[in-house]
Design a protein around this nucleic acid. Structure first.
Lengths: 68, 68
DNA sequence: ACAGAGTGTTAAATATCTTTAACATATGTT
DNA sequence: AACATATGTTAAAGATATTTAACACTCTGT
């Protein structure tokens, strides 16, 4: 019953004109390493960064991150 | 254009049987001070804590936190 | 063969979130 | 009056997220 946060960032990047990690990072104001860490589930981001990513892809937050 | 995160935790507590900050804190596994800090916008929580709060009230995350 | 772009890794420093603990104030109850 | 419950505040310590900087690997194009 221990839940984990999954993310669809890589898929969203690919579906948005092959957007690179670098471009996404710059667009939302974090470093590339942060995007990699989140994308690879090294840690879950702050709520603010999560919202910025969702906004960048123009989707609701729970289409980027899923808690289950 | 600078966006901020708002939250409806207080209203959600009131609409869920006058749930106290203490009970909410215990239910999601954080301290009461953390609930107070989030509720009063002293800082925005981690994505994980945000998801736990939404789950506790059985609503989607963007009904608890709004980014605008 | 070399250069560039994209992705991945690590270590150390800094920033932010969360806890622990203590105290304050207001309200309701015995 | 004394007690309990709920909310709010603060300071310091601890945990987690993020940055900075450096290096490595693959792929594509020249």
């Amino acid at each position: 019953m221990k839940k984990v946060i999954f993310n669809n960032i890589k898929i969203l990047r690919e579906n948005n004109g092959e957007m690179s990690q670098q471009k996404l990072a710059k667009a939302i104001g974090v470093t590339r390493q942060t995007i990699i860490a989140i994308e690879k589930n090294k840690y879950s981001p702050s709520l603010e960064v999560a919202f910025k990513i969702a906004l960048e892809f123009d989707v609701p937050l729970d289409e980027v991150f899923v808690y289950k």
